[in-house]
């Protein structure tokens, strides 16, 4: 199924990406070509083949749940990376304002 401009608008919305309306056609064309290429995988017989989620033979890698904390300088550096803050708190937009969302 071809990737239409409508599908691009949908994917951009799902991905929370604002894209220019002028670029929609080009993205549709590019993604359609890529999906057309990867489509060749469908011809591959994978009956009974397990999925590889991980290349190593590791399942889980549990460890003790211990808080290590971090030094003050690292903490300050992380706080100063916040785009907006109030004291040591990260400022975030109100989640329930966009009632039409």
């Amino acid at each position: 199924m071809p990737i239409t401009p409508e599908e691009i608008r949908h994917l951009a919305s799902l991905s929370r990406l604002k894209i220019d309306e002028d670029d929609v056609e080009a993205y549709a064309k590019d993604l359609d070509a890529i999906v057309g290429y990867v489509d060749k995988l469908r011809e591959l017989d994978t009956e009974g083949v397990p999925e590889m989620a991980h290349v190593e033979d590791l399942a889980n890698s549990p460890r003790e749940d211990v808080v290590e904390g971090c030094d003050q300088a690292t903490r300050d550096a992380m706080l100063s990376a916040f785009p907006r803050r109030e004291g040591d708190l990260l400022a975030v937009n109100a989640v329930f304002v966009d009632r039409t969302d």
Partner: peptide, 25 residues
């Protein structure tokens, strides 16, 4: 966007999971 597409409902089985099997091969 490509990632969102191949993981979306209806496509994940045909694309993403097929790719994980191909990776095993």
């Amino acid at each position: 966007m490509l990632g969102a597409h191949v993981l979306s409902k209806g496509y994940a089985e045909a694309y993403y999971r097929q790719a994980l099997k191909a990776r095993t091969l």
